[in-house]
Every structure is written in structure tokens, then in C-alpha cells.
Simulated assay, not measured.
Amino acid sequence: MNSENSTPPTPRARACGWRQKAIATTAALITALLFLPATVPAQNAWTGFGVTDNWSDTGNWQFGVVPDSTMSVLFDYGSIWPGVANAVVDNIVDQNFTIGGFLYQTISTNVYHTTLIDAPQSLTISNSGGDAIFVGTAVSVGSGQNVYSRIVGSGTLAVTNTSGVIRVMQFGDNTDHRATLDLSGLSNFVADVGQVLISTTTTANEQYMMGTLTLAQTNFLRVAPDTTKPGILVGSMNNASTGKRGTQQILLGPDNTIQADTISIGGTKMDGAIQFRSGLTAGAKVTLRGSAGGSDPVKVLAVADHRAAPGSYLAGGTSA
């Protein structure tokens, strides 16, 4: 083509191009989803193509419908999913929603997404098994490729999946590449799940994992009763890899109630910490109980038990 006779596409033409890509991708994914097992929620990705930033705007969703309990919400980092600068709200839970899962895979060296839930609205994640919340790309990344998910507002994030997992982890090369779920700007977090796993793996070749879960202002976190494995596990690399990097973290908010039969901080080959986040007043508190609550005690509170793995306390033998 003669460059002298070519003209750049107009903004409308570019917009149409984006939408054509989105339509083609949507059609391909819907076809693929026909072959998914019934227990796996369909992944309805945020596109941001709507007239507003509201979740109720069908134009913002890859399937052209708002998400429901049969779908996981996906914030991806692909070229057709626009993002914004750090800490800028670009998606708003403008009414009560119940979804099947929340998956966040946006690499924050490129763009961010920040979700706003203001009272009286709530976002409920309800399903059976699998990842209730997953923050990370699930593939190895390089230097500085962090995955940072932020949820803010005066409303409530609720997770009701007593056999599901809240999982925050990113692996890659021997450089910083942390996955973070940041709820510090959210008023209320309520979770009833099977496990909370921060930077844990049993998969071969996954190493140098980094992850942080920062809790909300007021938190109630309960995990399913079980003394054979950690209900809350902060750091564990139960595979043949040896590369570790940094400290894996759960950062507490001002008011925290945690009910878990077993809590392990720093499991197999990894360093971990549960601590209050910086900047809190002297009145910050945490209450630890067993899964049954009330007077039920925590059965195992282990620090630096390097035989604590996601599925047992028997990685390499009996726990010390």
C-alpha cells in the first residue's frame, strides 16, 4: 500500500475494531464453554465497553449479560480488556450481585482495575468447591509483573463457599512479582470457605511465589472444620523446587474475627507472616477461635512448620 494515500483509522473505526475483536472472542469462548464441566463456572470477563462503569450495564461484559451465580467474573490482562491507572475506580457494583467466583489476572505493570462496592450494595461469591477468589495469572511471569486487585467502598464482600478456596499467589523468575488482594479500602469482608491459601503450591516447577492478602476494615473469616491440613496457610512450596522469594502475608484490618481449626504461617520451604497492616490505631484487634466459634479453640497454630502443605501436615513426614 502506498503510504501517501493511506489514512489512519478514525476513533469510531478503532472503536468498531475493538468491538469486533470482543464479539469474535465472545463467540469463541461461548462455544468453548459448551464443553466445560457443569461444576466449572463460566468466566464472564469485564470489557469496560458499556456506557457506564456499572456492573448492571450489560455492555461491560463479554457475554453481553450481567454475571450471576453460574458465572465467575474475570478481570484479565488481554489487549481487548481496557484498564486504568492505579487506585482509579473503573467498575462499580451498583446493585446486589451473586456470582460464582472472582478471578483477577490483570498484570499491574500494564493496567489496574479497582472495584467499588458502596453500601447498601453487596457482592456475594457463592459456589461449591474450586477457587472462590483467585488472584494471579496462573502462569510464570518476569520481573516487576505484579497482579494487584483492589476492592473498595462502604459495602460488603461476602464469600459463601464452604469447600472453596481463597487463593492469592504469583510465581515466576527470581525477581519481585507479587499477587495482592487489597481490601483495605473496603468496609466489610465476610467469608465462609474451605481454605485460605497465600502463595502455596504442590505443582512442579512453580517457584519464587509471592502473595499478600490485605483484609478490610471489619472482617469475619471462617474456614471449614478440619485438623488434617491447614485451614489458613501462608506460604508453602510442596514440590521439588527450591526457589523462594520474600515473605508471604496476611495483613489484618482494624477489626478481625478468624475462626479456623488450623493456622500455619510459613509452611514448606516458605516464609510467612500474619500481622496488622501499617497505619492502624492502638485499638486494632484480632479474635482467634476454632471453626465452630464461641469457646472452640484453634487446634493447631503453627509457625515455621516446614511440613505444612496445602493438603496435609505430612509433607516429607510427620510435622515437628
Rank of each mutant, 00 (worst) to 15 (best):
R307T: 09
G235V: 07
G155Q: 05
N188E: 15
V234P: 00
T10L: 11
I117E: 04
G17P: 03
N44K: 02
S241C: 06
Q145A: 05
S3D: 05
G78Q: 15
A24I: 11
N219A: 06
D182A: 13
G317A: 13
Q145S: 08
R150N: 08
N188M: 07
G253K: 02
F49G: 07
R150T: 11
I23Y: 07
L123H: 10
D68C: 14
D255N: 07
S79T: 13
R150C: 07
V51L: 05
I265A: 00
G155W: 03
V165K: 00
G78F: 14
F75D: 14
G272P: 04
V141G: 03
I274P: 00
F49K: 05
P297N: 13
F189Q: 11
F189R: 04
S163Y: 12
G101E: 12
L186N: 01
K299S: 13
D305A: 12
G100F: 02
V165E: 00
S291H: 13
A308Y: 04
M270S: 05
V190L: 10
D296L: 09
S149T: 04
G78M: 15
A138V: 13
W61N: 09
M210C: 09
S264A: 03
A15T: 05
D255I: 05
A27W: 11
T247K: 08
S79K: 13
T39V: 08
G290W: 04
F134K: 02
W46H: 14
F171P: 08
T98D: 05
L183P: 00
A302H: 09
M210A: 07
A13H: 04
S163V: 07
S72G: 14
T52L: 06
G246F: 06
S278H: 06
M270G: 01
H113T: 15
G253H: 01
T58N: 15
T25I: 06
G253W: 08
V303H: 14
T175K: 03
L74Y: 12
G153Q: 14
I107C: 10
V196G: 00
L34W: 03
G100T: 04
I125S: 05
F171N: 08
I23Q: 05
I107H: 09
Q207K: 02
S154G: 06
N239G: 09
T106G: 11
K269Y: 06
S236E: 01
A320S: 14
P310S: 06
N256Q: 10
S264K: 03
N146D: 12
D131K: 01
A308F: 08
D255T: 11
V51C: 01
S154E: 08
Y208L: 11
A22M: 14
I250T: 01
T180G: 06
A304E: 13
I232V: 06
Q121E: 10
T201H: 04
N44I: 10
T201C: 04
A179C: 12
S184E: 07
V196D: 00
F75P: 12
A32R: 09
P297E: 09
M1D: 05
P82E: 15
S122M: 13
D94G: 11
R277Y: 04
I265E: 01
Q195M: 01
I23H: 11
L29G: 03
Q95V: 09
V93T: 10
V168M: 03
Q62W: 09
T227Y: 09
G100W: 01
W18P: 03
Y313I: 09
M71D: 13
N91F: 14
R222D: 00
A224T: 11
V139A: 06
L186C: 07
G50K: 07
G64C: 12
V147A: 11
